[in-house]
Design a protein around this nucleic acid. Sequence first.
DNA 1: TAGGCGATGACCT
DNA 2: GGTCATCGCCTAC
Length: 189
Amino acid sequence: MNDERAQVADFARSLLGRTFTGHGVAVRISEVEAYGGVTDPASHAYRRTERSEIMYGEPWRLYVYRSYGLHWCVNIVTGPASIAGAVLLRAGSVVDGLALARERRGDVPDAQLARGPGNLGHALAITKADLGVDVCETTSVHLGPMLSTPEKIRSGPRVGVSRAADVPWRFWVAGDPSVSAYRRNPRAG
DNA sequence: TAGGCGATGACCT
DNA sequence: GGTCATCGCCTAC
């Protein structure tokens, strides 16, 4: 089981530096969080419900959910299906479609266009309509190639989760200005 | 069927 | 540093 959990963390790290395109805007991924599925109390897949069902299926699918009624958060299902792992895309820097991203996000500094999971989803115009798409297919939402290997990857506790908050499964590119600030969930103890 | 709560972000002091 | 908007989903009744 530990090996499978390590796979999810490796998957998360491997996404850093890759591009992710959503409806005409592309970002270079700078921050992610890994969720270990059935063995991870912080994961939506910890309980198998209709919503989390997609994480028990094929890897490379998009899992989109709404947070606090306002924000769309973007996850990539990693597999293996036996543990229902997924990786949350938390932040990135816009590398293509800058004008469109600015239009969607309004008057904010470029480094903040896709800073934080809600903002990233907004900049890429990801909604529930994109739930379940295969990100390896070159459609309006897809995962692109590695732009450049990140020089230094750092890790730390995940942001905002109230359970298993001390598991260091947040990974980010050191020094990247688009990485969001760490904030601990007040319920995490 | 009702109530509680959250993998957030923006704005306030 | 603290507060709050806002609504879909999950759980308990």
